[in-house]
């Protein structure tokens, strides 16, 4: 690389100037995109602290010279506690966000534990045992990753209703046992992280097959399982369509369902409370993301390169 830039420098005089120009453009674009990514959340949090009147007035501190009216103000204001109280406890709104968080957490973590454990079990079954249908069934798992999940949503809801599982969390947690994408990822992960000699050693030591998996293999798979767990938590936490179809009791609502309530008719005048509620639903995800961003970015990079 050093040689290359050396030769070009002598051939083209403007080389350094050109690189500098490109660099300036790159940083300008990146900074603009950073603002674009963050601004909506900043506006959301500031507006959560404003009264309805202030929000109706505007956003940035732009003074209309003719009418001398403040149209836009960026600064946070004092109605934060009032908006929160209105959102959580007032007669008009009073959405049970505390329960909502508990419900979403129960679904997200329940589904994640099942999907990660059973995916590891399935991937291990494919990786270690040479049974007859191994290749065929694994090919099937690769294929079903492509099936759009929403195609079966209505029949799934109908089946759950028939089974009396309306207003139950079982339809969100139990099906997580079959997560083809996670199986695929962990199978790939095992091909580099797991050695068959270790499995053999376990057998010689008299471990049962499940004993080998639970005591020897699971600890080795932890990093890969953690990566998949992060994404499973987020996906299940954010799940919106299926809960709206299967849960109709307010106290059983998940967080995205409460967000849906925020846009509804009678609350919509209280813009501050709406922003407060949206901030409340975004906050745990932002904290979760910033704490784990290193692993999440690495996971996205790993998950994408499948071939």
């Amino acid at each position: 690389m050093a040689n290359y830039s050396g030769t070009v420098k002598t051939v083209k005089g403007g080389y350094h100037a050109r690189i500098l120009l490109v660099k300036v453009i790159v940083y300008i674009v990146c900074i603009l995109l950073t603002i674009m990514a963050i601004a909506p959340f900043v506006i959301m949090i500031f507006n959560a602290s404003k009264s309805r009147f202030e929000i109706q007035q505007g956003f940035l501190e732009w003074t209309d010279k003719i009418t001398n009216k403040t149209l836009i103000s960026l600064l946070p204001s004092k109605s934060f506690i009032q908006n929160g109280r209105y959102l959580l406890t007032s007669d008009a709104l009073g959405l049970p966000f505390g329960r909502g968080f508990l419900n979403s957490a129960l679904i997200a973590f329940g589904a994640t534990i099942l999907s990660v454990y059973f995916s590891a079990l399935t991937a291990y079954g494919f990786a270690v045992y040479r049974f007859k249908l191994n290749k065929l069934l694994y090919g099937f798992i690769m294929l079903i990753q492509m099936v759009p999940t929403q195609v079966t949503v209505i029949s799934f809801v109908e089946m759950m209703n028939k089974w009396g599982l309306t207003n139950s969390y079982i339809p969100f947690i139990l099906p997580a046992i079959a997560a083809p994408g996670t199986v695929f990822f962990l199978r790939q992960y095992m091909s580099s992280a797991l050695s068959l000699e270790m499995v053999e050693a376990g057998r010689i030591d008299g471990c049962s097959e499940f004993g080998i998996f639970n005591r020897l293999v699971l600890p080795i798979l932890k990093p890969g399982m953690a990566t998949m767990a992060i994404f499973a938590v987020v996906t299940n936490w954010n799940s919106y369509l299926l809960p709206t179809l299967l849960l109709d009791k307010l106290e059983m609502s998940t967080v995205p369902m409460l967000v849906d309530k925020l846009k509804g008719n009678k609350y919509s005048v209280e813009y501050g409370a709406v922003y407060w509620g949206l901030s409340l639903t975004a906050a745990p995800l932002i904290v979760f993301y910033l704490a784990l961003s290193k692993y999440i970015i690495a996971g996205v990079a790993l998950g994408g390169v499948k071939e």
């Binding site: 936490w237 954010n238 639903t281 975004a282 932002i286 970015i297 996205v300």
Partner: peptide, 14 residues
């Protein structure tokens, strides 16, 4: 990377 990916993790409904 962290900033550009952030919106992806948020609840789409939110």
């Amino acid at each position: 990377k962290v900033v550009f990916y952030m919106p992806n993790i948020m609840t789409a409904a939110t």
